[in-house]
Simulated scan of single mutants.
Amino acid sequence: MTWPAMVWIGGAPGAGKSTIARRLARRADLPLHPVDLWTYAHLDRLPPLRPLTEELAKGPDSAAEAFVGVARLRLDLVVADVRERDLGDVPAVVEGPQLFPSMADSVPAAVWLLPDAEQTRRAREERLARADDPAGRARLESLLARDTVLADLVRREALERGRVLIEVSAQPDWAGITEAVEDALGAPPRLAPGAELSRQRRYENLAACRQGRLWQADIGLAELPPYPFACECGTSGCAATWEGTPDEYDVRREQGWLTAHPAC
């Protein structure tokens, strides 16, 4: 299989992957591709999977093994999704906990962020605080135990393959971590400002809308928590964002905020 151009940011929850990837992509005019925003799109293309609660009930080692198995199945789908974006030589910044060093032999630019247990717990609890998700709260401890096993696996694979691994403490130096990630990923070619950069930012925003609405329907949320949508103005280096729900995004885009605003 021929892979499209990609740079990867992998690692465990709480490591700042999403924030750093978003910041890097917008500052460097790169397409952003968080794997989690394609979760429901992938479910339709995967074989039937056991419910998460069943996997967690088998213990952290078994649950971690199941997670890695699904991640390997999703790899081909991630590659196909990035290829569909028609980016040419411009790499997508692919981000998510599903990306393991043993899967990245074809990706020369990759980095893994590993938070300590306290930071991972904080991140999961903050995520739960943003939405009324009783099922998520009930499985928190089981997820944290699985996270520990997965973090050990990432560390071992990264060391075995000589890949870049950045440890994230409970008191992270986010500026230093971001700089280390940028150094590891280098200076890839950028999206052309204007129509192409605008098109890719809209593609990312629409993916967030689709994922959010499907998640809301799946777990029965009365209201979605806000998501940071990217500016679609197409100006090089524009990092302006607006937080809102998919429905609010639709309204704001019709009003022109995401294509022309003072921050640009």
Rank of each mutant, 00 (worst) to 15 (best):
2 T>E: 15
8 W>E: 00
9 I>L: 09
12 A>T: 00
13 P>M: 00
15 A>R: 01
16 G>V: 02
16 G>D: 03
17 K>E: 00
17 K>S: 01
18 S>Y: 02
20 I>R: 00
21 A>K: 02
25 A>R: 01
27 R>V: 10
28 A>M: 12
29 D>I: 09
34 P>N: 07
35 V>Y: 01
36 D>L: 02
36 D>G: 07
40 Y>Q: 09
41 A>H: 06
41 A>K: 03
42 H>F: 15
43 L>R: 15
44 D>T: 14
46 L>W: 04
48 P>K: 01
53 T>H: 08
55 E>A: 07
57 A>D: 04
60 P>V: 02
63 A>V: 01
67 F>I: 01
71 A>W: 03
74 R>V: 02
74 R>E: 13
76 D>T: 14
77 L>R: 05
80 A>E: 15
80 A>G: 13
83 R>T: 14
85 R>K: 13
88 G>L: 11
89 D>G: 08
90 V>T: 09
90 V>K: 03
93 V>Q: 02
99 L>H: 00
99 L>D: 00
106 S>G: 12
106 S>Y: 03
111 V>D: 01
112 W>I: 01
114 L>R: 02
115 P>R: 03
115 P>V: 08
117 A>T: 10
123 A>I: 07
124 R>D: 05
125 E>N: 04
127 R>F: 08
131 A>T: 10
131 A>Y: 01
132 D>S: 10
133 D>F: 11
135 A>W: 12
137 R>I: 06
142 S>L: 14
143 L>K: 09
144 L>T: 08
145 A>L: 07
145 A>E: 15
149 V>I: 12
154 V>L: 11
156 R>P: 05
158 A>F: 07
160 E>G: 07
160 E>P: 06
161 R>I: 07
162 G>K: 13
163 R>E: 08
167 E>T: 04
168 V>M: 00
175 A>F: 11
184 A>G: 10
188 P>H: 08
188 P>R: 05
190 R>E: 11
191 L>P: 05
192 A>D: 13
193 P>V: 09
196 E>P: 02
196 E>C: 02
199 R>T: 07
200 Q>Y: 09
201 R>K: 12
202 R>Y: 14
206 L>G: 08
206 L>F: 12
206 L>D: 11
211 Q>V: 05
214 L>H: 06
216 Q>W: 04
219 I>D: 07
224 L>E: 06
228 P>C: 14
228 P>I: 15
231 C>M: 14
233 C>W: 00
234 G>Y: 00
235 T>A: 15
236 S>P: 09
237 G>N: 11
238 C>W: 04
245 T>I: 13
245 T>K: 12
246 P>C: 12
246 P>K: 13
249 Y>N: 07
249 Y>Q: 13
251 V>K: 13
253 R>S: 06
256 G>L: 11
256 G>K: 05
257 W>M: 06
258 L>P: 10
259 T>R: 14
260 A>P: 01
261 H>R: 15
263 A>M: 13
